[in-house]
Amino acid sequence: MAAITLQGVTKRYGSVTAVQALDLAIHEGEFMVLLGPSGCGKTTTLNMIAGLEEISDGTLLFDANDVTRLPPHQREVAMVFQSYALYPNKTVAENIAFPLKLRRVPKAEIERAVAGVAEQLELTPLLQRRPNQLSGGQRQRVALGRAIVRNPSVFLMDEPLSNLDATLRLSMRSLIKRLHHRLKATFVYVTHDQAEALTLADRIAVMQGGVVQQLDTPEGIYERPANTFVASFLGSPQINLLREGLPRPSWVAEGREVIIGLRPEDVARPAAGLVTLGGRVELVSPLGSETQLEVALGSASVTLRVPKDWRVNEGETLEFGIDPARLHVFDATTERRIAP
C-alpha cells in the first residue's frame, strides 16, 4: 500500500468547508507537496489521509483499498508534526521505540532499530534525554526518527520545518530529501513555503480555499502557472501582474482583457528579438549576486532581478528587454492562464 488516491474528498466543519471535493492521485514513491497559504486546508487534507479527521464526503484509497473509514492506527502511515509532538514523559529512545512497542516487536529488535535510527539522525548521544532537554532541531530529528523507525510506506509531514531557524531548515530540508531517496516511500508534505515546495517536490498541489488550484511538477507550476493565484504564490520576489504597461503577445485576441505576468528574472539587456521597455528606477536593492530593482512602467511599477554588473542607480532611466514568449497571460475576468 503506497499509492494514495483522493476522490472528491470533502471536509466540513459545521458550515465551514475546509476541503472541497478534492481529487488527487499520489503515486507510489512520490514526493507530493501540498502548498498553500495558511488556512487553505492543507493540514485538514493531511489529517484525513492519516485518519485523524473524519472524511465528510468522498473516498480515500490506499492502492486499491478503500480506507475512508479506517482508524489511523490501522492505516500504517507515519507522520511528523509541526509541533514535533514528542511524548514529554518519555526519553528520546522511548519516543522512537514507541510505535514498535505498540506493535509488540521483540525487545532486542526494537533496540537494534532504535540504535540504527539514532545513528542515521545523529541522536545517539541524546537517547536518554527527555524532549524538554533538546533543541528545536534535535526534537525535529527525534520526530523524524519516530516516523522512520517503522519503515512505513507512507510518510505524512505537516510543516515539519517551520519552527526551525533558517540555517537548520536548509540542512533538515536536504536530510528529508535524502531520506526520501533512500526509503523510496510515498511522501505527502505540507508547507506554505514555496522554496521548500520547489526544492523537495516531485509534484506540487497548490491549494487555496480548500481547492487544488494546480497540480504539476515544480517546473510546470513555476513555468506555467494555471492562474494568477498560483503565479503570485510561487517565486520570490513575486511575479509582476499588470493589466497594462507590458507588451501583449501577438497571439492574444484583439480587445480581450488580459493580465500580463512577468517574472522578475525574465529580463535582459535590450537585444534583437526582445521587446524593449524603459522606465525610471525607483529603488535599488543589492542582494549580493544580483540586484533587485523597482522600475516605473507607466502608472505602475515592476520588480526586476538583474545581474549586479548592470550597475543601476536610483533615479536613472533603465532600458531593458523582454522575451514575449516568456510572458504569462491570464484572462482578466477568470484570472486563468491562456495560452496560444
Partner: peptide, 20 residues
Amino acid sequence: DLYRASRIDGCGHWGALRHV
C-alpha cells in the same frame, strides 16, 4: 498533536488514554 501522534503510532482510544 500528542493525541494525534499516539494514534498514528498505533494507539486506539484506550492506548491514547493510557499513554498520553
